[in-house]
Design a protein around this nucleic acid. Structure first.
Length: 599
RNA sequence: GCGCCCGUAGCUCAACCGGAUAGAGCAUCCGCCUUCUAAGCGGACGGUUGCAGGUUCGAGUCCUGCCGGGCGCGCCA
């Protein structure tokens, strides 16, 4: 909780307590009416209901007790019984000085740090990332950073899609494309033993020259289309998938090449977006655990035969709906999506042993995760509430359906980034910034601006709701946008740089202008914003704080000259500017963004 | 059919445990660069929170029904 709120709540609690009122209602919130107050307490209204007394009388009694406290400039009753609290300038500036002296700028930590694993991104081998991957990646990355900053130990896992039917398709397509590959795979499969290290190195060398990521990008859609239309082709892909999963050496080697090539390229693309995973565990890592898991489920009496498949029923008494069972083994004897997810839970327990796992996955999979989580609890693999699905809405087109390009295809993530970067370059040149920057710096800035525009446009929406993707809005740099935040940060850096050149130093805070008051209150609200973002797993609250802070700073900048001021006023304003920059950069970092030095 | 989510300004989105006058951005219009970066600042315009009931001192928020939209419902992942 923010420092000011904690102090106010203590005052309120003492007042409520001394009057025999329920202390849990003694809480202040930022005022809805900044023209009347800084904070308000609605507790008198709630208390009135509970103890059966007139709310205004209660409020009057509280005000009477509170009025003497030195930190308040005024304490008043309004409306049906709101208690309006206005802080003294002295109390505000004292709090601002505390924040200035705090390396974390007022941001607290969780009381009991936990080990959290965050499963997000979900890229697949050989499938280029499209705009649909943007949300999971950047929401997950932001949540990881928020948890880490609040004190948790976090691990971000890409949960690489590397083990399904698409691998059989690709293996077949690669063999068709090149006789050398076909011979390699078939010989190894026939031999039935793993190649020597030397032979393996040679094989990878040959594969590297023959199959690049670009080849995979091209091959996969073709193979997928053939798989749909041609039954024989589909059956071969199924056989190859089964061969891979039974670890035939040829298939395994080719698969490892695919995975390696894809991972390197994906990690680079993710990094360009400010998304970095600690782990690249894949579905393949959970696969070896499946046989013993099935045996264990069997031993626990959870497995049932149903229509030739083996299932776990997860319905509870009193369920409002019929959840489907978890399909563990299909009638063909293969593991399913949910089987892998369940085995992954076991794998994670044996390695990182997380106290909580967050799955940052499309909202549409809510039922699937409900089934998997229930099965995990039934089997004793996880505790109730330990696994949490963080669903997010889809990115829709203007027709209200998941976004497609005009041609009807999916928009590749890299194309979107490139388009945005083009606009950023254009805009930088218009502003006359190309000249003074070296080409690399110019390009780096254009990239930072583009990424800020894209990510902020997404992260400023609450994750749970779907939103309409509008290219113009995503590539816009004015108003409530990422580039606006970068711009404010850069402006502050510029001022602070000049101040340093002139040997000017920051000093104690003096609250004189309304713009300074507004800034001080917002700086104090930082911790509340972070705590709320953490509790609700909602990065948009961090985005919102950053935006409000930037906006308040911009007003302050217009109203209160910093460098042209003198003495203690200038020192105070430099300190305010420094704190704003600090919080702004922390927020940007929590959103996976960064500001350049100049723009 | 069953279930989940959504419906807020012309458009895109916010709104902390139910609180006062529902907020931003974009778009439109009017001002402001002879002080630190105008990607900025100020102002104007814009609302029966889908509809109808209910609970409450108080409802965008909770409950019920209806209308409209999206999504999910065993052998894809």
């Amino acid at each position: 909780m923010s420092g000011l709120r904690r102090a106010i709540d203590q005052r309120l609690a003492r007042a409520f307590g001394s009057l025999g009122l329920p202390v849990d209602l003694a809480r202040a919130t930022p005022s809805d009416r900044p023209d009347l107050a800084d904070f308000q307490c609605n507790g008198a209204l709630a208390a009135a209901k509970r103890v059966g007394r007139n709310p205004r009388e209660i409020a009057a009694a509280v005000v009477e007790v509170l009025g003497a406290a030195p930190e308040f400039a005024s304490v008043e009753i309004a409306g049906p019984g709101f208690i309006n609290l206005r802080l003294s300038d002295a109390a505000l500036s004292a709090r601002a000085d505390e924040i200035a002296a705090d390396p974390r700028l007022g941001a607290g930590r969780v009381a009991t740090p936990r080990r959290i694993l965050i499963d997000y991104g979900g890229p697949n081998v050989a499938k280029p990332m499209h705009v649909g991957h943007l949300r999971s990646s950047i929401i997950g990355e932001s949540l990881k950073r928020i948890h880490r900053f609040r004190g948790d130990t976090t691990v971000g896992d890409a949960h690489f899609g590397d083990w399904g039917y698409q691998m059989g398709l690709l293996i077949g397509a690669a063999m068709d494309a090149d006789p050398w590959i076909q011979a390699l795979v078939e010989d190894l499969n026939t031999a039935g033993v793993e190649p020597s290290p030397e032979a393996e190195a040679a094989a990878f060398e040959g594969l590297s020259q023959r199959i690049s990521l670009a080849d995979l990008d091209r091959m996969y859609p073709e193979a997928a289309a053939l798989g749909k239309s041609d039954e024989a082709y589909r059956n071969r892909a199924r056989r190859l998938t089964a061969a891979l999963q039974s670890r035939r050496p040829g298939c395994l080697l080719l698969w490892r090449h695919f995975a390696r090539v894809t991972q390197v390229a994906l990690a680079r693309d993710f990094h360009a977006l400010g998304v970095d995973f600690d782990l690249w565990k894949g579905e393949s890592d959970a696969d070896p655990l499946i046989p013993e898991m099935v045996a264990d489920l069997e031993a626990r009496g959870l497995l049932e035969d149903d229509q030739g498949a083996r299932i776990v029923r997860v319905g509870y008494q009193g369920d409002k709906r019929d959840l489907p069972p978890l399909l563990v083994v299909s009638s063909e004897g293969s593991a399913m999506y949910g089987t892998t997810d369940l085995a992954t839970i076991l794998d994670r327990r044996r390695t990182f042993d997380p106290e909580q796992v967050l799955y940052v996955v499309d909202q549409r999979q809510a039922d699937h995760f409900e089934v998997v989580f229930r099965a995990a609890v039934l089997a004793g693999y996880a505790a109730e509430g330990q696994l949490e699905h963080i669903g997010f809405g889809t990115m829709n087109g203007t027709d209200g359906k998941p976004f497609k390009t005009r041609e009807g295809g999916v928009l590749k993530l890299n194309d979107l980034i490139e388009m945005t970067r083009d606009r950023a370059r254009e805009r930088l040149r218009e502003a006359g910034l190309g000249a003074e920057l070296a080409p690399e710096a110019f390009e780096a800035t254009a990239h930072q601006v583009a990424v800020a525009a894209l990510k902020f446009a997404d992260l400023s929406n609450f994750r749970g709701t779907s939103y309409v993707f509008d290219l113009d809005r995503f590539t816009s740099f004015e108003g409530k946008t990422g580039p606006y935040l970068l711009y404010q940060a850069v402006r502050i850096k510029s001022v602070l740089r000049r101040a340093a050149e002139q040997g000017l130093e920051a000093g104690p805070i003096r609250i004189e202008d309304p713009a300074e008051r507004e800034l001080a209150l917002l700086l104090d609200a930082f911790d509340d914003a972070l705590a709320e973002a953490y509790d609700r797993r909602a990065p948009n609250l961090v985005a919102d704080h950053a935006y409000r802070l930037a906006q308040a700073f911009s007003r302050f900048y217009a109203a209160c000259p910093i460098l042209p001021a003198e003495g203690e006023v200038r020192a105070s304003r430099l300190s305010l500017a420094g704190m704003v920059l600090g919080q702004l950069e922390l927020c940007l970092d929590l959103l996976g963004l960064s500001a350049p030095e100049r723009m």
